[in-house]
Each structure stands twice: as C-alpha cells, then as structure tokens.
Amino acid sequence: MSDVVLTSVEDAVMVITMNRPESLNAMTPEMLDTLADVAAKAAADPAIRCVVITGAGRAFCAGGDVKAMAAANEAAASGGGGLVSRVDVLRQQEEVSRLLHEMPKPTIAAVNGVAAGAGLSVALAADLRIASDQARFTTAFAKVGFSGDFGGTWLLQRLVGPMRARELYFLSDVIDAARALELGIVSRVVPHDQFWAETMALAKRLASGPTLAYARMKDNFVYGETNTFADTLTREAENMVASGQTEDHRNAARAFVEKREPVFHGR
C-alpha cells in the first residue's frame, strides 16, 4: 500500500492516516485512490469494529493538491482525457466519503488541524467528528473557483441548515473549533494535548459496543435521509426485529436483568 495513506489496527479500531504532512495532507490522485480502497476494505472486514480517519502532522487535510490539479487541467486542455472520464475518476475517488457515511460500523473523523475543501467534506462524511482546539475549518472551494466535491454540500446543509451551509460555501471563511462546535459541525472539542487519547478512548468504546445494532442504526439514519417518515418507520421496524434476533441482544438483555455490563461479540 502507498505510504501516502497509513493504516493501523488497535483493539478492533482501524486508524486511517492521510500522510503527506509536508503539504498539510493535500490530496493527490494516489492518496484518493488509496483512501477509497482502504475504506472499502475496512467496511468489509468484520474484525474492524470502528474506523478513525485523521491526518499526519499539523493538519487533517488541506483539500486537493492545487499543483496536481493545475497539472491535470493542463493535460486535459491538451487532450489528455475527456470530461466524462474525468467525472468518472473523481466519482470513484469520492467513494471514501460514501463509505465513511454508510459503512455498517461507526466512523470518526479526528480533526487534528486544518480541514479544508475536500478534506472538510471527508471529515463531514464520518459519523462523529472530534476536533483538537487547534483545528480550523473552511470549505475553501470558492477561493480556487471550484464548486465542491466529496459530498460536502449534501452533508453540511444537513448539519447546519441550507442557509448557513451556503454562506460557508460562498464566503469560504475560516472558522475555529469553538465555532464549529457551536454550529454542530463537530461533536466535541478537546485540548490538543489530550486529543489523541480522547479520540482513541471514544473509538475503543464504540468498537466494544453492539456492532450489529450500530450497523442497523446507521442504516436507519442513511435510509431516513432520503425517504419519507412513514417509510422510515417501516425500515426501523424491520431493523429492530432483526437486531432482536442477534446473540448480542439476547446476551445484553440477560446482562440487564442480572445488573451487569454486557459484552458484545458482533453475533
């Protein structure tokens, strides 16, 4: 695997690290292809019960590598690929966002520093975002004449509302971690020197939880984003009955009656 993306596993938590610290983890095609591949493998691996995505060094991700994009634009202008093929390539790279949002296990974006452009979009795709108090956030796209990708417009307006999301996209202002918490972009802000310990404590807590129930909870949320309330009630009923058939539920019910902590095995 490319060293622009690093992975490690601890206590069923996979940590995916964007690893171009010298460029604030700006995304190259190689990084994007690798991220999509790694996320797909994490989603399919039952031994992975929680996924954390973060950045090496002092940034989460500064977005797309503008130098690489400029080179690609020059190549395209010289006949190096049609519009349709470029859309197809970008759409495949965007799979990392879909997988973080939809994979049947909890995902956390650990925002250790700046999250900009597509980097912010990828962070928004995770279920939870924990931020260092040194983190900064900006959509950034307007500053380089781009409209946005990796699902940011779809995700951000559901977090902060359509009007505020448009403002954040149109103006591309930089906001600090406290403002991101106030807007609901992140779920918690942690002092930088405690950031990684708290991130992993949260991830391990989720990894030790009811994996199968989490998967069905996520299915309810994702389904409900684009379906009616009545249809979502049906989906919830289906998932509730199915989760009630698991060994995890039966063991947890016994633990509740016996006044002890349940242990979940993902069965």
Rank of each mutant, 00 (worst) to 15 (best):
V122A: 10
A42D: 12
L120T: 08
H101P: 06
V38G: 02
A44L: 13
A42F: 02
D127E: 00
L100Y: 03
E74S: 02
A126Q: 03
Q93M: 14
V51D: 11
A59Q: 04
L35T: 04
Q92H: 15
M103F: 07
V38F: 03
H101W: 07
A42T: 13
L120G: 14
D33Q: 11
A39D: 15
R98C: 11
V84S: 01
P106V: 06
D33P: 10
Q92W: 14
A126Y: 01
N73S: 12
G82W: 03
N73Y: 13
A77R: 13
H101A: 12
V87I: 12
N73Q: 13
V66L: 11
H101V: 07
T54K: 07
L124V: 12
G82Q: 07
V52L: 04
D45R: 01
M103L: 08
A126W: 00
A75D: 03
A70Y: 05
L90M: 14
A62R: 00
S85E: 10
Q93L: 08
A109C: 11
A126M: 06
A77G: 10
L124S: 08
D37H: 10
V96Q: 02
N73T: 15
A43F: 04
T54S: 04
F60S: 07
A126T: 01
G82E: 02
S121I: 06
